[in-house]
Each structure stands twice: as structure tokens, then as C-alpha cells.
Write a protein that binds this DNA or RNA. Sequence first.
DNA 1: ACCCGACTATGACAGCGGTCATAGTAGCCC
DNA 2: GGGCTACTATGACCGCTGTCATAGTCGGGT
Lengths: 198, 198
Amino acid sequence: MAQSVRGPRERMVFSAAQLIRRDGVAATGMREVAAHAGAPRGSLQHYFPGGKEQLVNEAVDWAGRYAGKRVARFLAALDEPTPGGLFAEMVRQWTDEYETAGFAGGCPVAAATVDCAESAASTRAAAAAAFAGWTGPVAAALTDMGVPEERAGSLATLMISALEGAILMARAERDVRALTTVARELGPLLDAAVSESG
Amino acid sequence: MAQSVRGPRERMVFSAAQLIRRDGVAATGMREVAAHAGAPRGSLQHYFPGGKEQLVNEAVDWAGRYAGKRVARFLAALDEPTPGGLFAEMVRQWTDEYETAGFAGGCPVAAATVDCAESAASTRAAAAAAFAGWTGPVAAALTDMGVPEERAGSLATLMISALEGAILMARAERDVRALTTVARELGPLLDAAVSESG
DNA sequence: ACCCGACTATGACAGCGGTCATAGTAGCCC
DNA sequence: GGGCTACTATGACCGCTGTCATAGTCGGGT
């Protein structure tokens, strides 16, 4: 995922994202984040004077940028890029994790949305930005593959919605079934959006 | 939603579901649930000797059954039932709520999954059961419409995944865009599953 | 030597969480 | 009335949370 030893600040943001992924925002303590990052507790108020909300926002931010960057990697892994292939790759990242590391973690952006959408306006905005920073590259990739621009954005939203929902179901069921199902059913529809225009 | 004045026990379960929907599981206090239900605090340990976990599980359970029952109502509202029409109706329940009541609440099952999947085994199981009790009726409705049985389950999973994900995005963005997009893009695919077999 | 900024180290505080303990009330059956 | 069950009413406890306050260390500049 991330490099081994960045600065303590970055490590704390990363640790926050990891813990939020697992337990949700409310159940993740500041002290716990510091401990997990191997960072001194005193650094919390130094690097994050805005308190927990700032830390959470940066973690969500980080996650959104990470997801956006991953899209480029997925594209590179496909020798014949197709929308369905990209989606399959996005799903595979999760099935791989769940099969090798267990179902401990979900999507940190989803967790932030569930826990903070109504209680912390800035975190809600950070989650929206994270979704946007993820949908954007996906939509751009689709247009590159020949999907008409006006549909690319819609399909990107559909892909991420289906993926997020399937992550939820998979985690509840402790089974990747929902993920593989969604990839299988959505693939043809996505690929059809290319040939329609070609 | 629910009748006006059921027993205090049921009211507490219902209130728990409402509060979990809004703030997540961890941020929802027992005292808060009792107050919201207009129930005495002492009744908590009387009706829910299993503590918060039991209360949360019953709330999730209730939500799952509620969602399952809604499917029948949606079908009744359609004079010509089609998969796409059913999905549009499922989505419309959320767009209606968000447009009239604001984006305060999400899906309680999603919230329970995010907050408890790793920390409370019984709640995770309750969430899985809730998803199953929701997917089942949807799949059954699809087969009734002429969708081949082996695809009905898959498509039901896809529908609920996409809906859950779109709920997340809509709440983060405070915009029903994701919901309407998903309904529009998925409708044709769902309807095609009928004509293929007919 | 002096200072200053960046960072670390603790300790305390006030609040809230779920839960336990204990006592009280209301109704009903015998 | 006695006794039983269902339910209600409080108060206390302990652990944990985020945050603040204060003091400390360390490294460079000059």
C-alpha cells in the first residue's frame, strides 16, 4: 500500500484510515491511531490542531486520492482495456484482500459517510470529494475506451455504487459472492457502452 | 412508516433503527434511544438484557424485514411489473425521502455493517440476515416477472448493491444524483433479462 | 551562550458510554 | 391481604474519549 517509513504525520493519517476502515469513525480513538502509527501521542495535537475531525478528514482525503490513483494502475494491468475489464480489476482488489487477509476492513469513505454525514459537515464534504476524486478518473478512463462522454460519468457512478454496495454485503456475509456477482453481471453492460458508439 | 403507538419495546427497536440510520451504531447511545422512543430508561435492561448488542441486532433485524416487505408494496404499485420498474421504485423511496426530509439518514443495515462487522459477530450476522431477507423477495419478484432463476438472485444482489452504494454517495454529496443515475443506467439491463428468456 | 522553533511527554479534566444494583410501583391471581 | 410477575426508577461505577495545559527535549542558527 504505502511506503514503509514516511513522516509520522503521514503515518498517522494512514493509520487512521486503516482503523476507520475496520471499526468506523466513532469507535476509532485518537490514542489508538497514534499507537498504531508508532507515533507519540503528543504529536496528535501538534500535527492536527483541528482535532479528530481534521485527522478523519485527512484520512478520507487520502483514501479518495489513493482510490483515484489505483485506477491508472488497473488500466496499466489490462493489455486490452475495456470498461468491464476495469471494473473487474477494481472488484478484484477487494476479493483478493478478503480472501487473503479476511473481511476485517471496508471502505473508509463509506465508513466516514455513515458515521459523520449528519454530524460533521466537513467530513461529509471530504467524503463527497473523495467520491468525486475516484469517479473522475474512472469516467476519464471510460471515455478513453470509447464510451460517449455523457454516459461515462453515469457509468462511473454506477460502477462505484455497485462496488461500494457489494463491499458492504461481502463484509456482512463474510463471502466475496456479492463482489464477484456484481462484476459478472455488470461487465457486459459496461462493455456494451463502447460498442454502441463504435 | 410504523404505527403510532405500539408497545414500548417495539418503539425502542424502531427508534434505535432511526438513530443508527442517522449517526451510526457507535454514536447512538442507549439513553438516547430510550428518550427518542419516549420509553423509560429502566425498560432498557428489562427488554434487552443482552445490552446494546441485542438492541442493535433487533433494529437491524427489523430493518431487514421492513425492506423485504416493501418489495411487495412496490410490486403492487406497478400495473405492469418489470425489473427496471421495481428497481426504480426502490430507488424512488430514497429520492423521495431525501428530497422531502433531507439527507439525514442512510440505511441502518449498512451502518451496522460498517460499525460492527469486525467488532460484534452477532451484529454482523444480523446484517447478513437482513440483506438476505431483502434480496430474497427481490429475487422472487424477478422470477415472477420471467427472469431465469439462476440470474434472478444475481440481479437482486446487483440491485441492492447499487442501491446501497448510491445511498452512500447521495448522502455524501447531499444530492440524489447518484440514485437517479443508478436507476437510469441499470433499468434497461434489468429489463433485458426478461426479454432474453421470453 | 542564547534563543527559537519544531516536536515530544505527561497529566488532568470533564463528559459520556454501557452496565450493574437496588428499590420502587402497578396489576392480577389465589 | 399475600405474593407474584411485569415493569419502572434512580443512582452509582468504571472505563474510555477528545481536548487542554504545561513542561520538557532536541537541533540549528547566530
